[in-house]
Design a protein around this nucleic acid. Structure first.
Length: 779
DNA sequence: GCGGATCAC
DNA sequence: TATGGTGATCCGC
């Protein structure tokens, strides 16, 4: 914000000097001390009517500029949006399930379309292009459809953007119906083009239509899989296409001398690492597979091998659910805590708005900081419930920021970037569940938790003032102090405590933030005392007695709950209903290694130097979202990848049994075993009692009961939603597979199965143990 | 889960 | 060319 203001001032100064100051562009004026002279002029004229008037006029011009820029942003974003829609409409005709990548790329599987097209009459494959003056340059005969690259002159000299022309011939690839005169007819025929039935032809057609419609050119790659298609699209970059036939030899020929950097997924760093091993090309990647297997992770090695063999994904995954959302900002050095908290809150506000637009609630808040030395640091914290509002996010982010500020005190944090991210989104089911449990929890536990807190005086406004440095007493303070054996980062403890407070919305101070989910009304009135842990109403009205009870409850000494150890199947349902601590994941099928045909359509009118007139204009029109995005759009491609499912030659498969092990499963196993399971003994993190059972479903149920005793009944009565997961099977694996290799391919590995609720067992459990100190705390 | 790092666009 | 912004993933803890 400051930087904007600054640059605004600077530019207006410059503008003003342009008006009043010395113009040294004239002949014979070079070499003079321009600045000095300008200074003298300014001084001399300052205060004069002329000066004032010039100033006024200059300001008016500045205002005009500002308005103009706003308008420009508006226009450009609309136009780009329109172009995007148009392109997508076209692509959908070739593959309704095409996969967009970003704003300007897409993968298509045109196998089916191609089959269908084989029998199409010529008329159905004929398109018209419109030009301003056909006769002018005589280059309109697009007679080179057999060339790999479309006649560039022809394509780029058809610069009509059919803005409002809905009767655009391109839309109706039939001939004469809308022609009125012979002349028009001849004209149209002259400007028509028929595309063939091959993949190459189809892709040419697509590119042609895109350009006619939007004036954006595109590059394309056609290959047996997405990876190859993408690399193909690079081959004839500005406004061209390239095809690798679905043939093993062709693939290997293509791959052979390809620099590894061309491979999607291999970036600057990986390139350098491999280079150090003398690996520059894909074939060298294969030759050096032995050392690579020793020097890189299993995942990386597999990925490298896939690359060197030309293997890539052959199915287009639908856009998965979003996994995180963030916002960040770069600025000139910011070093006062106050500014930093303010900015942090602003980011939270923006993020909250974005989250709410998509109706998302997440559990993990991550603060990202970049200092003036460009060093990046992230700090994350996961809450027990979820966050979505500005206040909720800020409550966490603020604490994360506070730690960082404190960590360098008394020096200031010298920041150049700050960002806030929310991840760990709840699915619909979780949302319902959380809402229920939180409301119930609060209903029942609110008063007591309020009472449990130490009185506090401050009226501090957390949102605008730097928070005090001394941690406040809170719900868990005593417990923590008593139990904490390992020394923890002070911040984390504090944050956890505060978050617990926050979760319970149990502000001691009514002036303090009160979340929207629960009002603070009556929070001072105590009618009954209910233990927030076991939800049992307490007979004694003595707060001390209650506190003692809570202590005991947390210690587990009061928990008499006996969990049945039977492994009855219906536990699965219960587990699900209560809270899905453990869920079985389906393994993603590793389909990657089929040799299929993939096409990559298009680059953007990559503003190649020779087609600038054609493309620049179109690309200058870019959404207003960010300057960076604009620049990016100016320099990159609208590529679409076409995927042809022509099965081919040798199927080189790296698949083996390990692929059955979904990486998430493995990870779950690992983390779970590191938290709750040790040597097959399950210890409830709430009551701290050893559980006799080894059945995780049973164990989970116990944890549920422990945590949500009051709510459980209600939920089990109301929600019946059987799941298919085989928990028993899963639970058997857990513990024994703790060190199973993570074998998924990065492109398919960590995608969540659409059928499965995203909350994994480990996540839930880990949430309970939500941070290291909580874990310790419970122990 | 956390934090650092890499990568794509 | 360098720098930004957003989102995803991996890896070692």
């Amino acid at each position: 914000m400051d930087s904007t203001k600054e640059s605004g001032d600077v530019s207006s100064d410059n503008g003003f000097l342009l008006r009043v100051g010395l113009n040294d562009n004239k002949a014979g004026m070079q070499g003079l001390d321009k600045e000095k002279i300008n200074k003298i002029i300014m001084e001399a004229t300052k205060g004069s009517r002329f000066y004032e008037n010039e100033l006024k006029k200059d300001q008016q011009v500045n205002q005009r500029i500002e308005k103009m820029m706003q308008l420009k942003d508006k226009i450009t974003s609309q136009q780009l949006l329109k172009a995007q829609l148009q392109v997508r409409k076209i692509l959908a005709q070739y593959d309704p399930n095409f996969m967009p990548v970003g704003l300007d790329e897409a993968y298509l599987n045109i196998t089916e379309y191609l089959e269908e097209r084989q029998n199409w009459p010529e008329d159905k494959r004929k398109y018209f292009y419109k030009t301003d003056n056909v006769t002018e340059n005589g280059k309109q005969d697009l007679n080179a459809p057999d060339e790999l690259k479309l006649n560039e002159d022809a394509l780029s000299s058809s610069p009509i953007l059919f803005e409002d022309n809905t009767s655009l011939a391109e839309e109706q690839p039939t001939t004469t119906t809308h022609l009125h005169t012979e002349e028009q007819r001849d004209q149209q025929l002259l400007n028509s083009i028929v595309f063939g039935t091959s993949a190459q032809e189809v892709v040419k057609e697509i590119r042609f239509r895109i350009e006619q419609k939007t004036r954006l050119t595109a590059s394309a790659g056609i290959a047996p899989n997405t990876m190859l298609a993408k690399m193909c699209s690079d081959q004839n970059k500005p406004n061209g296409q390239f095809r690798i036939p679905p043939d093993r030899q062709a693939v290997m020929d293509f791959i052979k001398d390809l620099p590894i950097r061309k491979v999607p997924g291999i970036g600057k760093v990986t390139e350098k690492l491999l280079k150090a091993l003398g690996i520059l090309t894909c074939s060298e990647l294969y030759q050096q597979r032995a050392p690579i297997s020793l020097l890189f992770s299993e995942t990386s090695w597999r990925n490298f091998m896939d690359i060197s063999l030309g293997l890539g994904s052959t199915h287009l995954e639908k856009d998965g659910e979003r996994k995180s959302m963030s916002t960040e900002r770069t600025f000139g050095e910011m070093n006062t805590a106050e500014d930093q908290y303010d900015l942090c809150q602003e980011l939270c506000k923006d993020l909250a708005q974005d989250l709410q637009k998509e109706g998302l609630k997440g559990k993990t808040v991550t603060l990202k900081l970049k200092n003036v030395n460009f060093e990046v640091k992230t700090k994350a914290f996961t809450v027990l419930s979820s966050v979505s509002t500005e206040e909720e996010i800020f409550a966490v982010a603020k604490e994360l920021l506070r730690t960082e500020i404190d960590s360098v005190a008394p020096h200031p944090l010298r920041l150049r970037l700050m960002g806030v991210r929310v991840s760990g989104f709840l699915n619909e089911e979780d949302k319902k569940y959380q809402q229920r449990s939180i409301t119930n929890f609060l209903k029942q536990g609110k008063e007591t938790t309020v009472l449990r807190l130490q009185p506090e005086k401050s009226n501090e406004d957390h949102f605008t003032k730097p928070p005090e440095t001394s941690p406040r007493e809170s719900f868990f303070d005593k417990k923590r102090a008593a139990r904490q054996k390992t020394s923890q980062e002070p911040f984390i403890n504090e944050a956890v405590d505060k978050q617990n407070l926050h979760d319970m919305k149990s502000s001691v101070n009514p002036m303090e933030e009160t979340g929207p989910t629960i009002g603070s009304e009556n929070s001072n009135e105590v009618k009954s005392l209910t233990c927030p842990v076991c939800f049992e109403e307490q007979r004694s009205s003595s707060l001390e007695a209650l506190n003692r009870h809570i202590d005991e409850c947390l210690n587990g000494t009061l928990v008499k709950e006996k969990i049945a150890t039977s492994k009855s199947a219906n536990l699965r349902e219960n587990t699900h209903n209560l809270s899905p601590y453990i869920k079985h994941k389906t393994s993603d099928t590793h389909t990657k290694n089929k040799m299929n045909t993939l096409v990559d359509v298009g680059h953007p009118s990559n503003v190649s130097k020779n087609s600038i007139s054609n493309c620049t204009e179109a690309f200058a029109i870019v959404p207003s979202k960010s300057r960076a995005e604009k620049e990016h759009s100016l320099s990159s491609d609208t590529s679409s990848y076409l995927y042809l499912d022509q099965n081919v030659s040798s199927k080189i498969s790296l698949e083996n049994a390990e692929h059955c092990e979904n990486s998430e499963c493995v990870q779950e196993t690992k983390s779970y075993s590191s938290t709750a399971i040790q040597d097959d003994i399950l210890v409830c993190p709430v009551c701290n009692l050893e559980q006799k059972t080894t059945d995780l479903a049973v164990f989970n149920r116990h944890v549920d009961v422990c945590l949500n005793k009051g709510i459980i009944q209600e939920l089990t009565e109301e929600i019946v939603c059987p799941i298919k997961n085989n928990i028993t099977e899963n639970s058997k694996r857990i513990g024994s597979l703790g060190k199973a290799p993570q074998s998924m391919n990065p492109t398919t590995g960590t995608k969540r199965s659409g059928l499965m609720p995203p909350q994994s067992a480990s996540k839930k459990v880990k949430t309970c143990n939500s941070s290291r100190n909580i874990e310790t705390f419970f122990k």
